[in-house]
């Protein structure tokens, strides 16, 4: 149908969702969308994104405390460090765009943390995936599920956002989540 309507390149994903072996996302189209109005200026998008990374970082730190063995504890701390790197790149982008240097403490005061990446709360993620906190594979699987959820949310948000620069920022963050998901997959394969 699409090819006949002027779509230049159309590919059928054979087997559809049933054949899809990688992580999937769940929930309706509006899940987590309340975090963004769609009218945010670029700096506001970065503040929301930073808060989501902060939420996930705190989530991993909480789980590190609950972890049953040292390997899993280390893994959670490693995952939380990755979120710190994401936060730093968002903070750097904030200062570049605002053209006024805001120190990190002042920036963090402007950021509210309410939800994790992907738009679900800590409890919702744990209820949903019920990870075994003694298993490295399950922990990485949980992290991959969250990244898949985050990638999905940023895609949906991108279609809602009207400001071109804000949209570009969201797309860039979505691409970073995609890379993060791939690297977690490699980590999983290495176990």
């Amino acid at each position: 149908m699409l090819a006949g309507k002027g779509f230049k390149k159309v590919f059928n994903v054979s087997g559809g969702i049933n054949a899809w072996k990688s992580k999937t996302a769940i929930g309706p189209q509006d899940l987590g969308m309340d975090l963004f109005t769609g009218k945010e200026a670029p700096l506001d998008v970065l503040k929301v994104a930073y808060s989501l990374e902060q939420g996930l970082r705190e989530f991993y730190i909480t789980l590190a405390k609950k972890a049953g063995n040292e390997k899993v504890k280390d893994l959670f701390l490693k995952l939380s460090d990755i979120e710190v790197k994401h936060q730093m790149s968002i903070y750097t982008a904030y200062n570049q765009i605002s053209k006024v240097e805001t120190n990190k403490a002042d920036f963090e005061k402007m950021v509210e943390t309410g939800a994790l990446e992907g738009g679900l709360s800590t409890e919702e993620y744990l209820d949903l995936f019920k990870p075994d906190l003694n298993s490295e594979k399950e922990v990485i699987s949980l992290a991959m599920s969250i990244e898949a959820q985050a990638l999905d949310l940023y895609h949906r948000v991108s279609s809602k956002i009207t400001h071109p620069e804000s949209k570009a920022i969201v797309n860039k963050i979505a691409d970073e989540e995609k890379v993060h998901l791939t690297s977690l997959g490699r980590l999983m394969d290495s176990l």
Binding site: K23, D152, H155, A174
Partner: peptide, 8 residues
């Protein structure tokens, strides 16, 4: 809602 490919 049940399951989709991320970004769809």
């Amino acid at each position: 809602k049940e399951s989709h490919i991320p970004g769809a």
